[in-house]
Computed example of a mutant assay.
Amino acid sequence: MPNNPSTIQQTGKSSQLKKIGVLTSGGDAPGMNAAIRAVTRAAIAKDLKVVGIQSGYQGMIQGKFRDLSWRDVSGILHTGGTMLKTARSKEFMTKTGRKKAWQNLVKEGVDAVVVIGGDGSFTGALVFSEEYDIPFVGIPGTIDNDIFGTEYTIGYDSALNTVVQAVDKIKDTAVSHGRIFFIEVMGREAGLLALNSGIAVGAEVILIPESTDDQKVFDRFISKGYKRRKTSGIVIIAEGDEMGGALKIAAKAEKENPDLDIRVSILGHMQRGGSPTAKDRIAASKMGVAAVEALIDNQLNIMIGLRHDQVVHVPFADAVKLNHSIDENLIKIQHMLNS
């Protein structure tokens, strides 16, 4: 299995590993079920027992465990959401909560845990593993694709295609009526979903947290683009953009330009749902198998990542503390195509 030697702790084979737990945590993402399936079947193939931990870390605290067999994960590869459910747990943020979780893991005989989620989930795993002697391996599952150390996170491609399909349909009515549509997509602190979907649909303006000249680009479109040509327009907005969400930006634009015909569409949680794309299914399968192999090789407190489509191991400390940067060339491409 290809790896990044600079980020791997080579400690030899583990002779103690008999049962692993798997959970999903944080926001759901298409492809999580594919990852659960891969973890379960890879573990069984290696003669390991598998338990699913329901409702994330909260389920760990409440002792919500279920044995997983080969058959239990049949028929879930193509489904969205997560069969194990997911939740954000404030109790797990306390030492008392983590102690309960540890006691339940010991009672269940769980030797290691695979956690599928984002940086918040990995932060929880890192803190927990530092307090208690149990290895964690993470699989990045978030539609934002904003985790340091991996070029790809499970769910991103599915969400991207959902946004593109929705905006293509909105664009039809925008053209028919000569309207400007302000379309808000997910991404509180990361604008990659907005940026790539905007390029894919030919949006005239894309507003993302990482860009510092959003206002100038937007003003240029209104004054030199829309008003001059009197045609339709698509403005893609990441929900975390510093100018505000779509409703706030649209209200400001209408106030300053009362002659504009503006509509707002917030895509919301539809971006999280639906059947995962082939790319997400394949990535989840690769990462799931790699997570089990990492535990067997006694890799501790790492995240499975993909770089140039090859599996790499990234320390949790790097994944949760370092910032994921956006490709500035994509921003330049967007500006060039709409100048």
Rank of each mutant, 00 (worst) to 15 (best):
M60W: 07
I296Q: 15
K332C: 04
Q215V: 09
I180E: 04
T86I: 08
K279Q: 12
I249R: 10
T11F: 14
G120K: 07
T231S: 15
G97P: 05
W70K: 15
S275F: 00
R281S: 02
A283N: 07
V127I: 15
L322Q: 13
D146N: 11
A166L: 10
N298K: 15
M243S: 01
D318L: 13
V51Y: 11
G202F: 09
G273E: 01
S197R: 10
V51I: 06
A42N: 11
N323A: 15
R272M: 03
I266D: 06
T231W: 09
G149L: 06
S74V: 09
R263N: 08
N301S: 02
I36A: 02
D309N: 11
I333K: 13
E293Y: 11
L105Q: 02
T11H: 14
P135M: 03
F221I: 01
I302E: 05
S55Q: 14
T123W: 02
R37S: 05
A251F: 05
F65W: 04
S25T: 00
G31A: 10
V311L: 11
E131N: 09
L192A: 13
T82Q: 06
G117Y: 01
H78C: 09
H269K: 02
G138I: 02
R272K: 05
N104H: 02
I208W: 03
E204T: 02
M270A: 13
I266R: 12
K107D: 05
A45Y: 12
R228I: 15
W102L: 09
H324P: 12
M270V: 13
E189W: 15
K13L: 14
F136W: 07
G149W: 08
L322T: 10
I8G: 11
L195M: 07
G80Q: 01
S232H: 15
V51P: 03
F182D: 09
R41V: 01
P5E: 08
M1I: 10
E131P: 06
Y226K: 14
K13A: 14
P2Y: 14
F218L: 15
Q215P: 06
L17S: 02
I296V: 09
I20Q: 08
K286N: 08
Q310F: 12
N161E: 09
L77E: 09
A251I: 11
K100D: 14
E130F: 04
A203G: 08
V106C: 11
S265V: 09
K169V: 10
P258C: 03
A101K: 10
